[in-house]
């Protein structure tokens, strides 16, 4: 079991009001699964993804990553997990605009402590795998949305993480580029990565091993297909 959560609750304080984004989430995900998370806007999907990606901590409940309880892991090791174990892909790409494509992709490798030469070599290879070898020195602003998302994926996988988390990766894309992106995820799944993808797209959902429906911070269909 690569991921399992026990009754995860996440509350946000907005002044005096408490917003319950997650109200007791139990999920179990096996290594190598492709899981789709679906649900209406505001239902807590992103919140869950952030917790799974070790970017946020739950208000209550337990999260086990590789059978280790995340709340007990030290900060420095969490950073290492974000760096090596998890690749995050966002709806809005989140590339650094002032860095070129190569530097953007090299970023996780830099935080792993790899030398510039090694980083460049790996970045080029990974960029090739998403079909953008010729854009190494371009700035993100010079690329189309679909291309930018491919760069973001390249960055997410550059350290060969076992888990890839994608939060509505095709949300800002037209159908064609969206399909390109999805086929990349499909390939990554075939290569053995565990993939969790938030989507509204039925086509994606069909490719998934299973679909988790979230409504109002709660799972609707449980853990089964």
């Amino acid at each position: 079991m690569i991921i399992s959560t026990g009754n995860i609750i996440k509350n946000y304080k907005m002044g005096k009001v408490i917003v319950s984004a997650l109200r007791g989430i139990d999920i179990e995900i096996q290594k190598g699964e492709l899981v789709a998370i679906m649900g209406p806007s505001g239902s807590g999907k992103s919140t869950l993804m952030h917790i799974l990606g070790c970017l946020d901590t739950p208000t209550a409940g337990k999260y086990f990553l590789n059978n280790e309880e995340v709340s007990k892991i030290k900060k420095a090791k969490l950073a290492k997990i974000r760096n090596k174990e998890i690749g995050f892909v966002f709806q809005t790409f989140n590339l650094l605009p002032h860095l070129n494509i190569q530097k953007n992709i090299e970023m996780p490798l830099m935080y792993s402590g790899l030398s510039g030469r090694k980083r460049a070599k790996i970045a080029k290879k990974v960029l090739g795998s998403v079909g953008l070898s010729d854009r190494l020195k371009h700035k993100p602003s010079e690329l189309s949305g679909g291309q930018r998302q491919r760069v973001a994926i390249a960055r997410a996988i550059v350290n060969n993480p076992s888990i890839i988390l994608a939060d509505e990766p095709t949300g800002n894309l037209d159908t064609t580029s969206g399909n390109d992106i999805l086929s990349i995820f499909s390939d990554l799944h075939t290569q053995g990565h565990t993939i969790i993808i938030v989507t509204h797209d039925q086509a994606v959902a069909k490719k998934a091993n299973r679909i988790i429906h979230i409504v109002d911070g709660l799972i609707q269909n449980g853990n089964t297909l």
Binding site: A76, R82, N83, N94, L96, Y111
Partner: peptide
């Protein structure tokens, strides 16, 4: 701010 968020996401430590 956003850049900092991105850097943390890809593995930057607080010290970095």
């Amino acid at each position: 701010t956003r850049e900092i968020g991105i850097r943390i996401t890809v593995g930057a430590k607080r010290n970095d």
